[in-house]
Design a protein around this nucleic acid. Structure first.
Lengths: 330, 330
DNA sequence: GATGATTGTGAAACTGATTTCATAATTAAT
DNA sequence: ATTAATTATGAAATCAGTTTCACAATCATC
C-alpha cells in the first residue's frame, strides 16, 4: 500500500502539505492541491486508519453492543444502525454481550484504547456507575434500553405509554383478567420498570388489581412463551388475556395454546411487543405494539455522530413514539 | 490511559524490555518479568491496538460480510462467528453488502489498510478475479457462498447433495411436477449452480424434464414467496411440489397458499432450505434441509485464524454435511 | 585462558499519519 | 517605504507500540 510519503514524493511536496490537502486545511494553493490529488489518484492512496487513530484522530468506527443478534428485534436494529453508519462513512464493530457483565465490560474497554470512537448500547448489564465511568473515554449512547435517572444520552421509546396503550386496548376489548409477561425482572430498572408503570396505570383506571400469580418474569424466547402457556393451562383460575414483552413470547404462547386446544383470542387474548415479521406470520396474527426500529437506529447513529463532533444537541434524551397494531389475537 | 513508556518508567526498565514481556519473547530474566507485570497491574495498562497495528502486527479483528443481517440465516451465522471469534479473543467488524458490488469492495478495502486481519465472506457479489486480487492483502475465507473452480479457502456444505436429497425426497413421496425456486440466477456460479445440478440429477434419475415455466429465480424473502405462490395459482397447469432456496420463501408460499385456499401438501408440497426457526413455526411445519450453521461459523473462524497464523491446513476447502428434516409440508 | 555461543538489556529506528514550529513569500495598512 | 498580517510550505516532533542493532554478561568448549 502506498503511504503518505509516497504521495509526497510523487507530487514533489512534503508530507505535511499532503496531509493538509487530505484534511481540507486552508491556505493551500490550488496547483499544489491538484498535484496532490493527482498523485493520490495514481497511487491509489488510502490513508492508514491505524496511523490516524494513533495520532488521536477518530477512526470512523462505532461499537454496537447487542445481547444477541439472533433476536430479530436486534438484528433489525443492527441493520438500521449499520446502514446509517455506512451512509456516514462509519463502520460497525458488532458485539454480543450475551447478557453477561464481563462480556459487556470487555467491549466497553475498546473505548479506552480508541478501537472505537463511540459505543451504542442496545442492552445494559452493568450498573449505572460502571457504565458512566466509561463515558470519560468517549461517548456512549443508550438505544432502546436505558437507565432511570441517568443523564446519559439516549434514544428510546416511551415504554410507559406503550405498555399503557397495549393494556388499555385489552381492557377496552373487555378483558379483565390480564396476565403480564416481561423480559426483565418485575422490579427492574429502566425499560421494564417503565412498562410495569404503564401496565399498572391502565389497570388502575379500571380499578383492577394485579394478580401476582399471573406475572411471568425473565421471559425472552418462543420457547419461554410455550412454557408460559403450559403454566397458564395448568392453572385453576386462568387469565383471559396476556400482555407480553415481545412478539416472540407472544408467538410461543399462541403456538402452544393452539396445540393445547385453546382458542385465541376467545380463550386467551394475546398482545405482543415490537411488531416483528413473526407477528404477521402466525395464525392468528398478533396484535402488538410497533417499535420504530428503523428510526431508532437512524437517530441513534445521528446522535452519536453529533456527540463525536461535539455538536450541541437539541435533546440528549430522545423519545420516539410507538403505535398500536391491532390484528386478530386480541 | 497508561502507555508502555509509563510501564517502563515505573518498572525502571526500557520500553523494549516491557514490549518483550508483553509479547512473551524469550531471554528475559524472571525478576524483570515480575517487575513489568507488577507495573502493568498497578497502572491498569493495556496496549494500544492502533500502535501495534501500525507496526504491522495483527489487530485481533476479523471482518464479516453478510448480504443482510435481518435474514435469519445470516444472523444465526454471524452469531456463531462472533461467539467463536470472541472465544479466541477476536472482534468482529460486521458489514452488510446489501448485495451491492461497491459496498463489498468498500469493505474488502479495509484489508488493505489493515483495519481487519482477515475477512469472512458469507456472500459474493464481485467477480472471482476481483476478490482473489484482494487476497494478497490478507486471508479471505468464503463461508456458505463459494466460487466454482477457485482455490480460495472455503467452508461450505455440499449443495449438490443437499438439493439432490431434497428433490429426491419429493420424488419419493410421489410428486412428479416439481417447480424450482432459487435465490440466485439459474445459470449462476457457485452455490446456486451446485444446487441446480443436484436438482437436475434427481429429476434425471426419474427421467423427468424440467418445466422452464416452473423455474423462479432471484427470490429471497417471505414476500417473494407469496408472489411466487400467486403466480402458481394463476397457472393453468400447476406443479404439485416446489423446491425452494430458503425457508423464508417456502414460508411465504405456504402462507399465501393458505389464504388462496390451497392445501399444503395435498395441493402443493413445499420443501424449504436452511431449517430456520420459522420452519417449525408455520402451519404446516416445513420439511427442509438443515444447514449446520453453528458449525459453519465455528469452522470458518478456526480456519481463518489458522490462515492468519500461517498454520498448515488439513484442507483448505471444507465441506459440511446437511440433513433432511421431514415435517408436514411434503 | 582465549574463543564462541547463549542470555539479557537498552538506545534508537521504524510504522504512517497529524501537528507544531519556523520561515518564506505575498498582500494590506500606515 | 516600512511594518504588520495573511498565505503557503516544509522540517521535525509526536502518537504508542515493535524490532533492529549494539553491547554486556554469563556459560561452555577447546
Amino acid at each position: 500500500m502506498a503511504t503518505i510519503s509516497d504521495v509526497a514524493e510523487k507530487s514533489g511536496l512534503s508530507k505535511a502539505t499532503v496531509s493538509r490537502v487530505i484534511n481540507n486545511h486552508p491556505y493551500i494553493s490550488k496547483e499544489k492541491r491538484e498535484l496532490v490529488y493527482k498523485a493520490m489518484e495514481e497511487l491509489g492512496y488510502q490513508p492508514n486508519p491505524s496511523a490516524r487513530r494513533l495520532r488521536g484522530q477518530l477512526t470512523n468506527t462505532i461499537g454496537v453492543i447487542v445481547p444477541r443478534i439472533v433476536n430479530p428485534f436486534f438484528s433489525y436494529l443492527v441493520d438500521a444502525l449499520e446502514q446509517e453508519a455506512y451512509d456516514h462513512n462509519y463502520q460497525v464493530l458488532m458485539f454480543q454481550s450475551d447478557e453477561k457483565k464481563d462480556k459487556e465490560l470487555y467491549f466497553l474497554n475498546l473505548l479506552k484504547t480508541r478501537q472505537v470512537d463511540g459505543i451504542i448500547m442496545t442492552s445494559i448489564e452493568s450498573d449505572r456507575e460502571v457504565i458512566e465511568s466509561y463515558t470519560k473515554f468517549g461517548p456512549i449512547l443508550l438505544c432502546n434500553e436505558y437507565i432511570s435517572q441517568s443523564e446519559m444520552p439516549v434514544v428510546r421509546v416511551d415504554q410507559t405509554k406503550a405498555a399503557y396503550m397495549g393494556t388499555k386496548h385489552l381492557l377496552d376489548q373487555g378483558y379483565r383478567n390480564i396476565a403480564y409477561c416481561t423480559g426483565g425482572l418485575f422490579v427492574d430498572d429502566g425499560k421494564d420498570k417503565d412498562r410495569n408503570v404503564g401496565f399498572q396505570k391502565a389497570l388502575n383506571e379500571y380499578e383492577i388489581e394485579i394478580n401476582p400469580g399471573w406475572v411471568f418474569i425473565n421471559k425472552h424466547t418462543i420457547e419461554d412463551g410455550k412454557l408460559v402457556m403450559q403454566q397458564i393451562s395448568d392453572m385453576d383460575y386462568r387469565p383471559d388475556a396476556i400482555f407480553t414483552g415481545s412478539d416472540e413470547i407472544a408467538a410461543g404462547i399462541v403456538l402452544e395454546a393452539k396445540s393445547l386446544g385453546f382458542k385465541i383470542p376467545e380463550d386467551l387474548a394475546v398482545i405482543g411487543f415490537d411488531d416483528q415479521p413473526i407477528a404477521e406470520m402466525i395464525d392468528p396474527a398478533l396484535s402488538t405494539i410497533r417499535q420504530p426500529v428503523k428510526e431508532m437506529g437512524v437517530q441513534s447513529v445521528d446522535m452519536l455522530l453529533s456527540l463525536l463532533k461535539n455538536e450541541p444537541l437539541a435533546e440528549r434524551q430522545k423519545e420516539l413514539s410507538v403505535e398500536l397494531v391491532i390484528r386478530s389475537s386480541t
